[in-house]
Design a protein around this nucleic acid. Structure first.
Lengths: 146, 146
DNA sequence: CTGTGTGCAAACTCTTTGCATAAGT
DNA sequence: ACTTATGCAAAGAGTTTGCACACAG
């Protein structure tokens, strides 16, 4: 953890260590600043909310986490910085990864004079009524926001 | 235009007509509330900013426009409600459609007990330095946020 | 020691809301 | 007439910032 910060050129402080621990200890995570703050707040002498925000931004700048495009409201951060897509469960405000295996190959050319700086794919999910709970998985065949 | 509002079950008011005109008169548009407000403000007796916000939300509720997932900050509205993906030009804060022809077929199954409520694909673009302006189009092969 | 990070509160930005007035049907 | 929309200003949510103090290198 310590090296992770040093490698990124960030000073190793108690707060940053604590935040890094929360983020990276238990595998991939998808968090908002508020959620992380709530989580940190059970620990004695937790970082302030402002520090959580600043730290998440610093981490994002250094490539330790990445920001995710989502509807209005809050900014999400993802500890997995590599290529992958997301499911978003609106009613629970939960964000999780789409298994790599399910991701189709993508080959959209950038317009002339531009380069692709990142791709964000978010598939919004809705919980089906109980009675349909065991229905066959639905497909998302090229149909953004039907 | 009038019928568009009536069909949606919205009262036809001067302000809503003005906003609908701005949105739908000149083909597909991608706007933020602020931008639309600025645009409307050149007209005598323009709608207030609050009304722009309320109207855009009403329009979105009735399916006349759709909301687009973008990084933090502002909410965007798109007059094209059908399935399509977007390029986002960060430095200019411009959003535009990806031609249908370029969009790959997508077939990601929803997890059991869920259905897909919408797909948002945003490809962030960066302007290349002048010297490379005529470079061959780059590809976005399955590489979200490299 | 020196410079950077932290905490707090206040500022800021974007969006929504309450309430009195205006306008549509 | 009756109901819904509008405008304004004020409130609200999320995020950033300024400044004094603390701490890592």
């Amino acid at each position: 953890m310590r090296e992770k910060l040093e490698q990124a050129g960030l000073r190793v402080t108690r707060q940053r260590m604590m935040i890094a621990d929360l983020l990276f200890a238990k595998g991939d995570r998808h968090v908002t600043a508020e959620a992380l703050y709530a989580e940190a707040s059970v620990i004695p002498y937790p970082p302030s909310l402002a520090t959580i925000y600043n730290t998440l931004r610093d981490f994002a700048d250094k490539g330790l986490v990445r920001e995710i495009a989502l509807y209005g409201g809050k900014v999400w951060f993802d500890t997995q910085t590599g290529p992958h897509f997301h499911f978003y469960l609106e009613d629970r405000e939960e964000l999780f990864d789409i298994p790599e295996a399910l991701i189709p190959s993508f080959d959209i050319p950038a317009p002339a004079g531009m380069r692709i700086a990142g791709i964000d794919v978010v598939i919004k999910l809705e919980r089906l009524p109980e009675s349909m709970n065991v229905a066959a998985p639905e497909s998302a065949t090229k149909r953004p926001n039907p």
